[in-house]
Design a protein around this nucleic acid. Sequence first.
DNA 1: CTTTCATTTCAACGATTCTTGAATTAACGT
DNA 2: ACGTTAATTCAAGAATCGTTGAAATGAAAG
Lengths: 103, 103
Amino acid sequence: MDDAGALKAFAALAGADRLAIVKLLVEAGPDGLNAGEIARLLGAAPSRASFHLSTLAETGMVSATKQARTVTYRIDFAVMAGLVQFLMEDCCKGAPQVRDCCG
Amino acid sequence: MDDAGALKAFAALAGADRLAIVKLLVEAGPDGLNAGEIARLLGAAPSRASFHLSTLAETGMVSATKQARTVTYRIDFAVMAGLVQFLMEDCCKGAPQVRDCCG
DNA sequence: CTTTCATTTCAACGATTCTTGAATTAACGT
DNA sequence: ACGTTAATTCAAGAATCGTTGAAATGAAAG
């Protein structure tokens, strides 16, 4: 991930609704969740959920696939991993305190 | 790091100036950099650098120590590590693809 | 073909954030 | 004391972002 991608990803994660959506999608696993369920779980109007889902999708952290009327969103762990790697390597220059933080 | 701290940290990293500051401070290492040098390296007015340094300091990712007239800023790797850990564990629930992303 | 359902798009408004330059605080050298 | 330097604070305006409800798209069901 490059600087521009990381900036977009950080901006996307810097919102309570969007962070909650990411967590929901991580929990949901490979099946993902459709837009309506996400809005309901979030307690947000569909238009609001859709707005936030779009900005998350723009970062690549979540992907959208349309089947008939419903759009299913899924977490993309590869992009999440790219962001973690950006933090550790590009941002923190591989500092051991950061690199070894999780076992 | 809790949700609220992570949200603040992500918001802070979601700005080109502030991301650049973090990188500068990582490069600078334990000696850190003072506010004036940061503003100069950034090509920004002192007030602008100070503004961004404050919001970074609020997240704990950088610390400020005042010696006479000059304020030295340093990166706090423990907090950066906390953010990485938040991403891997809280956010991605320890998914292997993310956890193993860096070797 | 009409209705219904899932979702997105749009426009308007309010809220937040960013930038700039001037004013301020505080410490230093003369 | 005086001027200078380092840094922050402040106020004003510009720019960006988030929320809301209504309208639009597009697919399924009757």
